[in-house]
Amino acid sequence: MSEFLFQALLTLDGTVRVATPLILCAMAGMFSERSGVIDISLEGKLLVGAFVAATIAYFTGSPWLAVFCAIGASVLVALIHGFACITHRGNQVVSGLAINILAAGVTVVVAIALFRQGGQTPILDRGDRFGPMEFWFVETLDPIPMLGAVYREFISGHNPITYLALLVVPASAYLLYRTRFGLRLRAVGEVPAAVDTAGVSVAWLRYRAVLLAGVLCGIAGAYLSIGQGAGFVPEMSAGKGYIALAAVIFGKWRPVPAFLACLMFGFLEALSARLQGIDLPLIGEAPTHLMLALPYIMTVLLLAGFIGRASPPAAIGVPYTK
């Protein structure tokens, strides 16, 4: 029984680890999409953030500076998206796609020019990146059965960015539902003309949403390369931006449900990693491929209205023209 508990705890631990970048990116996508700007460029911003964080951490040895620079770079990318989608009323999907391809190219090109290691950054030392945060009383609580293990493995010992991501969710919900900015943001994604009539700038509101998305994706990127990993590897975002987008849709463009979707998708990935090659009773070999594809399949089913109904913000994808 304690073995099972231990395995379960490790899986939950893995869930939180996998879900951290998803949560940050999902909140980013939610803000952008609630303002009416489709954001498939979460992936690209994540990748750029990861690369810049690893590079700065390597040269300066300061993970905090690295996070700030990752945010800066990701915001810059978000500005391109805003410039194309808001200022020039370009196609938002095309812009996002361009950014994703640009990000895949530019990170590798610069990495090769800087480090000559086939697009990777050198492996970072422990001091250059974020380690796990040990909470107080871990030693004190350790002898207590159950509680001690739960506290040690599940509550304590995560990355600082993980705790930050968990704080971002209520903060996002507050911002979206309890502030003037949030009200206007929701309005601009539904009926931008009404916001415009009220004398509030549609473009500036949308820019702020897009920039906010840039900030969050930058942090998520830093988590990949200097939190969870120890350096940048080409394509290390590996579709996480898209899974986060799926989580946004799965959460019906709302912060808490999107967060829960991230946890669920993270759990599926952590569980499938744990069940790799293990025979389960009744089922046989664990269907890990199916489990990894499940987030995408469920999102398709949800969008098609087979499990609940997800209706996007009314003005999503439509550039605003006065």
């Binding site: 410039f83 938002q92 190219g105 590798v108 090769i112």
Partner: peptide
């Protein structure tokens, strides 16, 4: 070349999509 590789093509491709797609009417 020492510093540039075929990955440059991805960059060019991204730029082309950006300028002839998203910013087509700039």
């Amino acid at each position: 070349f020492q510093s540039i590789t075929r990955d440059m093509v991805l960059l060019i491709q991204g730029m082309i999509i950006l300028f002839s797609g998203a910013l087509a009417y700039m």
